[in-house]
Design a protein around this nucleic acid. Structure first.
Lengths: 143, 143
DNA sequence: TCTTATTAAGATAAATTTATCTGAATAAAA
DNA sequence: TTTTATTCAGATAAATTTATCTTAATAAGA
């Protein structure tokens, strides 16, 4: 089991944080990303391809090609990657899996889970990739 | 994607809440549980079998057989079902999927996620199945 | 004892997620 | 133009999760 997000989404967030942390270096090869993050190369490549379609990253083919962020890291948030890969459905679903869990027809933990979801949403929304830059660099060193 | 827990775990929690809400009725047939909760019968049966091994539910074979809680619903919490089915690993893992995410080697959202996990843990720990009884009955009516 | 209704158990199948492989397209530079 | 290094795209494979099927074991009651 992944914690909350699919592996695809986890790798996507990691890769995008990596790109933000290495923005100054121009385009980055998938090999570098995959080796540093210790994630499967072809898989992360596929994920970055799809994020290209979403307009979050850009790619350059051919020799000295690679991936880079498609926009200013001050304008990208982790929630954007989640929205593009896993979707935002989890922010509207019951943690116990009950159908139609609403304020009118709540599950036993509806209220608490609602608050938790809001906090999780904020965690992914309040800071930008740029603001995570130094923390990302520090973390990457330890992998 | 499930929200946090596997379908197995979601169904397990739902079924156990159901048993607690119908404690007075003695053993409950899987058919009743599956039909009411609108979950696959054979699947929920398997899950209840495994919870029997964990000592959370008991079963009675043969005609007029079925499942029941193995102990007082005042002594069962949702976390027990999570622990038995999905395990407690998620309360110790990085939400971004980084390896070795600790206070010394934190990911960019380490601190926030830590607080969130604690709240989620509390949500599953503070109340017992017995305390959820009325809320469960209300919810089940609306499925 | 026989019939019936139930869980138990094991096998299998279907669906989804994760990962890999292969060849094409592209672009830089020799 | 050829070589080289890269992403792109599509096919496939492996692993895991979810779901179903089939038969056995059990127990109640006729």
């Amino acid at each position: 089991m992944t914690v909350i997000f699919s592996k695809k989404c986890e790798y996507g967030m990691q890769a995008v944080l990596y790109l933000a942390a290495h923005k100054d270096k121009g385009v980055i090869r998938v090999d570098d990303i995959a080796e540093t993050l210790k994630v499967p190369k072809e898989f992360v490549s596929k994920i970055l391809q799809s994020l290209t379609t979403s307009g979050i990253v850009s790619s350059k083919k051919g020799k000295f090609g690679g991936f880079a962020l498609a926009k200013d890291p001050k304008r990208i948030r982790l929630i954007d990657i989640v929205a593009a890969i896993d979707g935002l459905e989890m922010f509207n679903s019951c943690v116990l899996g009950f159908p139609n869990c609403t304020p009118d027809t709540p599950c036993p933990v509806h209220h608490t889970w609602g608050e938790l979801r809001t906090l999780a949403y904020n965690m992914l929304t309040e800071e930008t990739l740029d603001e995570f830059k130094q923390k990302t660099i520090n973390k990457i060193k330890t992998i």
